[in-house]
Every structure is written in C-alpha cells, then in structure tokens.
C-alpha cells in the first residue's frame, strides 16, 4: 500500500513542530488521529487536521497569512544576533543551522500590518526555532515592538508559543522577562490595547511575562499553558494534579484567560476587539 509507505516516511508532527514551509516531504502525520495529510491541504485548512480537528503548530508565515491582510505586513527587520553570553560553542552552530532550515531569523517575527484594514503591531512566535524560547534577541524584538506600538499608537498583538526562557543564554534570558514586562508598563500607561494570544504550548518565562499581561488574553482550543510542566510540579510538591489542569479550557474556567477562540475565528475576533477599543 502506498499509504503505508508514506506512513513510514512521513515526519511526525512532534518532530517537525511548525516547519511546514520546509520541503522535507509532502505529507505529514497527525499526532492525534494518525491520519496522513497532504501538507498543501493542511496549509489550506489553517494547519488543522481535516480528519480530527487537531491543531498543528503554525509556522510564522502561515500565521501571518491567516491574520494579517495580504501584502500589508512590514517586518521591523532588526537583524539581530545574540552575543552568546555563556559562550556556548554548540549554541552558535545550532542557531546558524536553524536559520537555514527554518528561513527564520529567530523564534519571533515582529512588524506592522493590517487586520481587516486596522493597523496593528504584531509579534508571532515559532515553536520550530528552539521551541520558541526567549533569549536576548526575542526579548529585544518584543520590547522594540512594544515601543513601536506606543510610538505609532497601534494596538499590540502577540501570538505566543514557547518553552520559556532560553537555557543557552542563562540569566540573560531570565532578564528578558523583566525587560519585556517593563516595556508593557509603558504601553499600559499610554493606554494602548494589548491582546495576548496563547497557542500550544506556552510555558515558562514567556507565560511568566508578556504572555500573561494582555489587556485581553485569548487562547486557541486545547492549548497547553503553564509555567512549569506538570511533571516538574508534581515532583516538586509531591502531589498529583488533576488531568488537563494546564489546558486553555481549565484556565478559562479559572479566570486566567478571557476567551477561547477557534483558529478560523481569530482574525475576526481580533478585528472586533480592536474596533470596540477605538
């Protein structure tokens, strides 16, 4: 059976979190239901499994196509590289390889664009680049974007997906949490709307900084959101935790997020929220 052959060759979605741009194969396997999906089909379906509705992680470019009006995105194009504060040899090589593989500069892209004609500053993270972790470049790009939102008086929208602070940059990564958070106090003072959109998975230092500080916090269905992972918490406190306690649905119930929005409705929801705020 041809399908069986494809099944063997198809990269699993877990190993290829979001690099659907990359011609590693034309097919991908759904982690949820095992269906083999033509990548073209998946891209046309907002990276949602047509069989079971499972949300695949999205490449920055796919997310931009979905959210931002065609041809209106302008990247801030900062062209930054980390100073590698811990002098990790392997790290520099890894970054270089990732840049080539993903076509991305770093784990976040930021710029201006329009949503149904409304100007916004938008930041989109990508799990395919070191699990969307935040080091100095991500911190700087997000902070710069916040400052641009203040200057241009455009609403700010950040799509988060992240494993947290970037281990390879040590304490400097941790400090990016304070840096982005401090910038948000200025945005807040300027009365500019900030909508934080949490996608699967959003963890660690990103949850513990800008992702949790939106005036409005939205999440995609079933997104996993937390600070420490469930296993780590259980080991630390010596108690087991209820199933699904880090899902968007659980967090909505407990008042941490404001609304769960299906991927197909995200653009219009953002548009409406911007309209209300005007």
């Amino acid at each position: 059976m041809i399908v069986d052959k494809i099944k063997k060759r198809a990269p699993s979605a877990k190993n290829k979190p979001s690099n659907i741009d990359i011609p590693v194969g034309k097919w991908i396997k759904c982690d949820e239901c095992g269906e083999i999906i033509y990548i073209e089909t998946l891209n046309k379906n907002l990276n949602i499994c047509p069989n079971c509705g499972h949300y695949f992680r999205m490449h920055i470019n796919r997310r931009l196509e979905q959210i931002i009006d065609k041809g209106t995105f302008e990247s801030f194009d900062l062209k930054l590289e980390t100073s590698n504060p811990l002098n990790m040899e392997e790290y520099t090589k890894k970054l270089k390889a990732l840049r080539e593989k993903t076509g991305l500069e770093e784990a976040v892209e930021c710029g201006t664009g329009k949503i149904n004609g409304e100007n916004v500053v938008i930041c989109i993270m990508d799990s395919g680049f070191l699990m969307g972790s935040m080091g100095v470049v991500v911190g700087e790009k997000i902070t710069y974007a916040i400052e641009q939102a203040i200057e241009k008086k455009f609403p700010l929208i950040i799509f988060s997906v992240s494993g947290g602070a970037r281990m390879q940059e040590g304490i400097i990564s941790l400090m990016q949490m304070a840096k982005t958070t401090s910038a948000l106090t200025k945005l807040d003072k300027a009365g500019i709307l900030y909508i934080s959109v949490l996608t699967d998975p959003t963890y660690g230092g990103v949850t513990a900084s800008f992702a949790s500080l939106g005036d409005i916090i939205l999440a995609e269905p079933k997104a996993m959101i937390g600070f420490a992972g469930q296993r780590v918490i259980e080991q630390t406190i010596g108690e087991s935790l209820p199933e699904g306690f880090q899902t968007a649905e659980f967090l909505l119930e407990h008042g941490f997020i404001d609304k769960i929005v299906e991927r197909k409705d995200l653009k219009n929801t953002l548009y409406k929220l911007i309209q209300y705020h005007k």
């Binding site: 590289e81 400090m175 304070a178 840096k179």
Partner: peptide
Amino acid sequence: FRNMGEFI
C-alpha cells in the same frame, strides 16, 4: 532592564 543583554 531595557539594556539587559547584548546583541549583535
């Protein structure tokens, strides 16, 4: 905090 971390 704005100036935390160096980049190239």
